[in-house]
Write a protein that binds this DNA or RNA. Sequence first.
DNA 1: GTGATTATTTGATCTATGTCAAAGAGTAGG
DNA 2: CCTACTCTTTGACATAGATCAAATAATCAC
Lengths: 190, 190
Amino acid sequence: MLPADALLLHIGQYIRVSEPLRTALLERVQAASYNKGELLHDARRVCTRSDFIQRGLVRLYYQHDGEKITEYFSAEGEWVNSPNSLVKQTPDIYYLEALEPTQTLSLHMRDLGYLFDNFPEMERYARLSMGSVFGHLMDRITSLRFTSAREKYEHFCRTHHDILHRLPLGMVASYLGITQETLSRIRAAR
Amino acid sequence: MLPADALLLHIGQYIRVSEPLRTALLERVQAASYNKGELLHDARRVCTRSDFIQRGLVRLYYQHDGEKITEYFSAEGEWVNSPNSLVKQTPDIYYLEALEPTQTLSLHMRDLGYLFDNFPEMERYARLSMGSVFGHLMDRITSLRFTSAREKYEHFCRTHHDILHRLPLGMVASYLGITQETLSRIRAAR
DNA sequence: GTGATTATTTGATCTATGTCAAAGAGTAGG
DNA sequence: CCTACTCTTTGACATAGATCAAATAATCAC
């Protein structure tokens, strides 16, 4: 299995990957790796890449009153970037941090532009894959509005079963918008 | 000013609208109008159109424990649809309701498909315009997590200044994820 | 206009979760 | 193996906002 196979598979869920597209992609992706704690992206810079996670775990976070607030977690088979910064080429508030040793395949701005310009199906892929993230964001909003801390945690366990045991409790609490203490008490009472 | 001018303007913010695209669009959009209280879309059906609001005000809501929960408001110059239902062609939980007499230009599924297939720049338009909604959703999540009821309301006043006076209080409260009573008390103390 | 809905306000509780503080557990480096 | 972090748990207390209930006020249909 080529290292890029997972990536092609992901794209293949949304569009047919023609031979020329496949070639163009493979020519342009670049492998990179990060240690635990290293930043894939720093809020003080403009985001110039999108990284596809081959192996590892990443969180998107931002600073709020000196606290690091986790916005979401991404693992194998997902793209990470700072969405607004990437599209508008201006800085934004988000950091990307490797929570484990992480390997990525990345596409630079310029190459993304090339692919979008020359392969209209890549535009479609981007549109459709964004669509699924959309649904998650809307569910998340519902969850923040109407569910108790316990329900939030139980929902998280269901939806993030695979990565739950890889995450420190404090980050999960901040993702859920509750305090670490509350989450600890919830877990105790079971 | 042609009725469709606002629509072309909106698209023109993201891509250049070529003459053939302009023609294709104008041939396919359909005008419709709705009375106050009428549904533009019903959750019991599959969403088959995207509606661009020419005049009026629409809310997206869903049922939760017998309550109608407002997910967002859209006014002149915005697209409304049930995103997931439209893309996946399966039912979803969202209703679209006209809060005022509303005129729309709508594009049917099939025509959207035609435009996406024949005008790659329409894919780009969809991708980029979705991107800006993205940012709003992320801000919304932050607001739900960290701000008091009063701050939520003040933020809403700032960001929805133009439509604030057109909205019943109960819907605003449900949008903000607080109770009507709390919102009423907040407004009293000023 | 008038009666009937529907929306908003006000009041009196109640409770989930936050805050502050400190003690235990785990883990990594020397 | 020990020291120094960092992470997690536990306790006591405070409070924003929910809930329940009822009184006004506004709007709509006839």
